[in-house]
Amino acid sequence: MSKRIVKVYPRFERIWHWTQVLLIVILMLTGFSLNGNLGLVPFGPAVMFHTIAAVLLLALWIFATFWLFTTGTWKQFIPRIEGMIETAKYYAMGVFKGEKHPYRKVYMRKHNPLQAATYFVLKWMIFPAIWISGLFYLTYNMWEGSANAGFWIAIVANIHLLAAYVIVVFVIAHIYLLTIGHGFRHHVKPMVSGFEEVDLTDEQEAYLEANEPERLKPRGAQA
């Protein structure tokens, strides 16, 4: 077992992440503008840009889903109980005493157990809630003839808005948690450069050195 600087976020994943950031920011600004919370973008342009950004994000998600499954990265996002309590304890108490994070990043698990659980809920419940309700919202005219359409559109709109607020909460926590431990810059950097220090087993190290040397920085290099 040794610590090595490894490319844990390949180019596609980084492009995916930052495009998603941009689109979600656009969707939030336009969405909360047209909902009447922000006066930032007038209603008409807000709807137009919200719709365009939403379609682009859906397209991105289709690519990301394809990538997750073809590369096997999807396994990173499967939640597990092991280490969950320790991680929770750390954020609730240990962090105030300056303790070290109990989770050691390993090559096959980029996320700590809490992170993995959060992303699981986000990807399997919140994102589907927002895009499915969003598609129903957008295509109201195709189902307005069905029974009680006037009632259901209000339900759809409320689900969409609630999911949006949950994503806002996620973004707040996501950004705040970057400040914990080694600090904001340290945490953001891997998502820019792709490289991060992780624990590698000897087998993993040997495999990478033999087969994917470009994913591995020399021993002693800085991330």
């Binding site: 909902n35 709109a157 607020y165």
Partner: peptide, 14 residues
């Protein structure tokens, strides 16, 4: 849309 930012989901979300 836009006429009631403080509806049920709006209040809960806020």
């Amino acid at each position: 849309p836009g006429s009631d930012p403080r509806g049920p989901a709006g209040l809960l979300g806020m």
